[in-house]
Design a protein around this nucleic acid. Sequence first.
DNA 1: TAGCAGTAGTTGTGATCACAATAACGCTCT
DNA 2: AGAGCGTTATTGTGATCACAACTACTGCTA
Lengths: 255, 255
Amino acid sequence: MPRSSSTALGSPEPKSQTHSLQPVARDTLQERVYLRIRQALIHSEFKPGQVLTIRELAQKLGTSIMPVREALQKLTVERVLELLPTRSVRVPVLSAEEFAEICEARMLLEGHMARLAAERANAGDLERIEQASRAFLSAKVPSAPTVIQQRNRDFHFAIYEAAHQPTMLELIEPLWVRCGPCTVALFVDLGAEKIKRGATTHHQEALEAIRARRPAAAEEAIVADIRATSERYQKYRREHAEFFVEGRRAKGFAP
Amino acid sequence: MPRSSSTALGSPEPKSQTHSLQPVARDTLQERVYLRIRQALIHSEFKPGQVLTIRELAQKLGTSIMPVREALQKLTVERVLELLPTRSVRVPVLSAEEFAEICEARMLLEGHMARLAAERANAGDLERIEQASRAFLSAKVPSAPTVIQQRNRDFHFAIYEAAHQPTMLELIEPLWVRCGPCTVALFVDLGAEKIKRGATTHHQEALEAIRARRPAAAEEAIVADIRATSERYQKYRREHAEFFVEGRRAKGFAP
DNA sequence: TAGCAGTAGTTGTGATCACAATAACGCTCT
DNA sequence: AGAGCGTTATTGTGATCACAACTACTGCTA
């Protein structure tokens, strides 16, 4: 029976009506599968290095293999997953160099966006940024690491949205997803508390700079924030080299 | 008959052996289809705004629809193609703003790479850059616009490869592909001659700067080159607004 | 003639099957 | 017991079918 309404995937999110009457593309199973796997990656339900197989995911998600194979390919193209020589896919284990290069690109692009935000942010933008900042600060430290990570993410993107450059924003998003699975490891290991303290300083600086319309300072704060993440990962990889062995075939992931 | 060896797609390119004994992933039909369509896009065999259908392409390429639909999805994820609300795909018509934002990102990333190239290029890198430069200069002006465009591309990437940042290089590539179909229009319309003259200046400046190990100058030259392209497109769109009507269902593309 | 309903054709999505290549397992022989 | 080999299981790819949503065309009605 084609187009089965599977129950394992939940409802197709609440339509995110930003402008009311857009010709909303009808949602496909493929997309729900894609979002589900993506979310699982961000939540560290898969480990770096783990191999994902089409049929296993299809079974766990209660669909045929078709939506899964297209979702996996999509994630592979976005470099969120990695293609093995055998054409299987796995969660990438970012080398120190790869992570550093991605952070370098992030510093350039996101720094640019922070600068623009300081120049262009209107009242509504500012309000959203401040709200995101409050949400980040109020995140309880012993809560799930993904909560803090999510609010950190929200804060950054509140700023970048204030730059009003939607196309560049779309270039930045995949960089975050690529880093996701590896940065979660940082939160879990180094302790969210310490990371939150470090980030708070940069966040406050960025917020102040945008409020005061000082583009250079805003860029500087964001770049510093990203650089801290980059250096943290360098350090972490050196100290936990044994964790990053190319472990294959680690099963798991309860939907 | 599964895995038919279609003849319409040509041979699977000469293996590009850069390091000899890599565990080369076996080539798939999907990948050949992908490269073929990608090439067709770069060569302007499709017009901006044109809708591509799975079955039509499959028939012209002599395959089933499976490889085509995956190739199209891949191109869509890379933003080379655009998803319509009906889930059909079409060649995007970049708005002036979108093009400008992509160019902005390119200036940041490619400027960074040019700077690094000036710092790090070794003898082999320099030789490759100079050879690419000679090839660009020797391109006959009345030749196919795509030849000049290709050699321009080769020159830029010869520089970026000298930065030795493979991950960031992979971030830059899709930006070029996205601009491809629209910049070809520039070459065809404004005349390759004029564009080549303009680019030559920036190319020579970049080459000199890298040779002399002056990172700032190298970055400046590359940024100027990209900015020229960006402004050219702005002007072009304004003057040829009528060409960019959202024309649907323009057929064509002889394989 | 303009408007509209109905129909035939087209298109993307999802399911299922077939197959070749790889990986995993068990067996034998030394 | 351990290395080598043949067999079975698993995996991704490609083809084909079924179907729902949409498009375009036709012919009827006011």
